[in-house]
Computed example of a mutant assay.
Amino acid sequence: MAEVELGQAVLPAYKNTLPIPHSTIPPRSSTSYTPMGSYTGLDEAEQRLLVLDVNEDENENESSSEVKIQIRDLSKVSDKSVPILSKVNVDIPRGVIMGVIGPSGSGKSTFLRALNRLWEPPSKTVFLDGKDICDLDVLGLRRRVGMLFQLPALFEGTVADNIRYGPQLKGKKLSDNEVYKLLTLADLDSTFFSKSGGELSVGQAQRVALARTLANEPEVLLLDEPTSALDPISTQNIEDVLVKLKKERGMTIVMVSHSIKQIQRIADVVCLLVSGEIVEILKPDKLSEAKHPMALRFLQLSN
Rank of each mutant, 00 (worst) to 15 (best):
V254N: 02
L296M: 06
L242C: 02
K68N: 06
V126H: 05
I25K: 11
S228I: 09
Y39F: 14
P226G: 10
K80W: 03
D129I: 06
P93S: 09
H258A: 09
I69W: 05
V51L: 10
D268T: 06
V279K: 11
L185F: 01
V270K: 04
S104F: 03
T125E: 04
D91K: 08
D91N: 15
R297Y: 07
Q8H: 13
S78G: 13
V138P: 02
I263D: 03
P26E: 07
I260E: 03
Q300C: 00
V256Y: 00
P26Y: 09
L154E: 09
L128T: 02
M36S: 15
L139A: 12
V90E: 00
V256F: 00
D189R: 11
Y165T: 12
S302G: 03
M255K: 11
G7T: 10
T235W: 03
L299E: 10
S30E: 14
L42K: 14
N162S: 08
K247E: 13
V67W: 01
S29D: 15
T17I: 12
R142A: 03
T17C: 12
G140W: 12
L151R: 15
E44M: 09
V51R: 13
E277G: 02
D137Y: 03
V243H: 04
D91S: 11
R94Y: 09
F155L: 14
A45P: 00
K173Y: 04
K87Q: 14
S86F: 02
K261G: 11
G166D: 05
K244G: 02
I71P: 00
E178Q: 15
S175M: 05
L230E: 10
A215L: 01
Y33L: 12
L141F: 06
L301T: 15
P93N: 10
S65R: 15
D240C: 06
S196D: 09
E66H: 12
L141N: 04
D187F: 08
L287P: 04
F111M: 14
S65C: 13
D135V: 08
E217R: 15
R143E: 09
L183I: 07
V220I: 14
L118I: 13
L118S: 06
S228W: 07
E58W: 00
L287S: 07
N162L: 09
S275T: 05
T252C: 04
S109Q: 07
I69E: 04
Q300N: 12
L301M: 15
T184L: 14
R249N: 10
E219W: 04
V159I: 07
L136P: 01
G203D: 10
V90A: 08
R48Y: 12
A211L: 07
V126W: 06
V4Q: 04
A295W: 01
G105R: 04
Q204N: 05
K131N: 09
M147T: 12
D268N: 13
